[in-house]
Design a protein around this nucleic acid. Sequence first.
DNA 1: CTGAAAGCGCTTACAG
DNA 2: CTGAAAGCGCTTACAG
Lengths: 320, 320
Amino acid sequence: MTVSNVVNKRFGSMGKDVRAEVERAISELGYRPNASGRSLRLAKRFSIGMVVVDESPTFLADAFITRVVAGLSNYLSQRDYGLVVQGMSARTLPQSALVRRHETDALCVLMSGPASRRRRLLERLAKPGHPVVVLQDVGSDSDGVISIRQDDFGGARELAQHMLSRGGRDFVFMAPDVEWPAIEQRIAGVTSALQGDARSTFAVVNCADGGFSDSQAAIARYVAQSGWPNAIMGGNDQMGISALKWVIDQGLRVPEDILVSGFNAFDTWQYTQPMLTTVISPAYEMGASAGAAILDMLEGNLPSERHRLFPVKLQPGGST
Amino acid sequence: MTVSNVVNKRFGSMGKDVRAEVERAISELGYRPNASGRSLRLAKRFSIGMVVVDESPTFLADAFITRVVAGLSNYLSQRDYGLVVQGMSARTLPQSALVRRHETDALCVLMSGPASRRRRLLERLAKPGHPVVVLQDVGSDSDGVISIRQDDFGGARELAQHMLSRGGRDFVFMAPDVEWPAIEQRIAGVTSALQGDARSTFAVVNCADGGFSDSQAAIARYVAQSGWPNAIMGGNDQMGISALKWVIDQGLRVPEDILVSGFNAFDTWQYTQPMLTTVISPAYEMGASAGAAILDMLEGNLPSERHRLFPVKLQPGGST
DNA sequence: CTGAAAGCGCTTACAG
DNA sequence: CTGAAAGCGCTTACAG
């Protein structure tokens, strides 16, 4: 009825006095429209789910994820959509209310784990008419599934080239034991750069959860077994900083004796002494872009790009 | 009808064969219940809003907030509730769809800004039958509003006492220009400790956004004007680390020449050289506790505590 | 320009 | 034990 038109600001076809009367009643009674009724009628929930498939309960602690969520959430609120955030292990994902019930209009997912499992989870999440944006992974070719990644391969290759030019020869890459596709891409990028230099060597060390103690222990173990590398690349800034500190504690000079780098910088790279050479991530913009792509698909448009790749930026510091 | 009972797992009053038949049809058709219909009928949205009132678009970048949200989100998903996350400036809050429409069953809020504005926003958010949990602030006395804080006052007092015992005399506290009630509590705690030592001095320096450059610039300005303090307390770890690095860059020794501390540690305190003395925050547990309190109130129970205070833990490092 | 009616999908009280 | 009916609050097509 007319009231509905006032609430939704379609004043085209009513008298001024009618509009004023309805508005008075609304504010007087403190009326607020019920979102469930609206959702049921329009068959839209006006909310998007952000799912982080990670075994760790502090799935939001990572700086990259944090920026993605902020960018996505801000974009969506501006368009009057809500963002439902949920971290979960691969095991519990299918039972989650978010996917079991029909609680969101679309999903944005960030998945860890083996590629085969990621593919399987994705198939389960993609429903007809329910778009899915995969972040930091290649996604799939199904309709309604698009992917948004940053150029981890290119960034890592450029970083490795930079370190080669600074005298890097024997490289170690620090990776967490959880399989994140972005980390795999970084390793591939480094490998690609090092292939250009026949004298170089390359090893990947497993840093367990990637936290401070695990990372330092992993590097220490590697050095004890295989001797000193002269270039250590952290899979992310956290691991890079852990290594940087440990190396200095051992009495080595950075960058004279050994080069150290991170990846996915936000601002912690400035906090070390020397400042960490790293790669800057456009995570916030990726989140916002995911939001725009999702709403676009919900409006029935075909996505302009099925796979979007964001450039990253090398940030040289004093550690290389 | 019976189908509804099967979906909701109430098998009490039906034949085995009927149940099997319905379950077969459900899986065959790929039926998933529509959450809007359910929400409308039950007058519950099964979702809670987390609102961060902050002018910065990267409202989630802070480590404390990140842990709170993770704890809350995990607790709620386990109880089949969703968490809608939204950061916004005080100005845009009233127009937000989250509050304008009736989109959540309850709200959890974390507010910055002057106390009077925080009180005003809270009044606007608290609706009858719509519980609000205020984090890191005292909240209000209205029914349906409870508060959950950590003991910033006590933690800061203990930290200041520790630094006094290590020779601290001329104290500087680094605060961001945004008014967060937790920071005010920390300043009050330090003030309380220093009152026990008549020779001590205390100044608060404004570090603008609390980032690396602003923090270092603020300390440099202070030192140029007022000379060297011998104890610098960061309002949080980020500011503490910025100061630590700047002080060392100036050629001073920590802790011999000057003591430095942080606050609200998660793991970055380990990343500095020397390790930062700081105070450990139970942010994750606070988030989970907020979730439990909210669902309890939604079930119609009166909150067992209107104002809950979590203890914090002094973490002495090499910087004091 | 305005108002009465239908129907979205669910759950629950009720009749058989 | 099972099924038909009512109604949650909204929007939209339709009749006046």
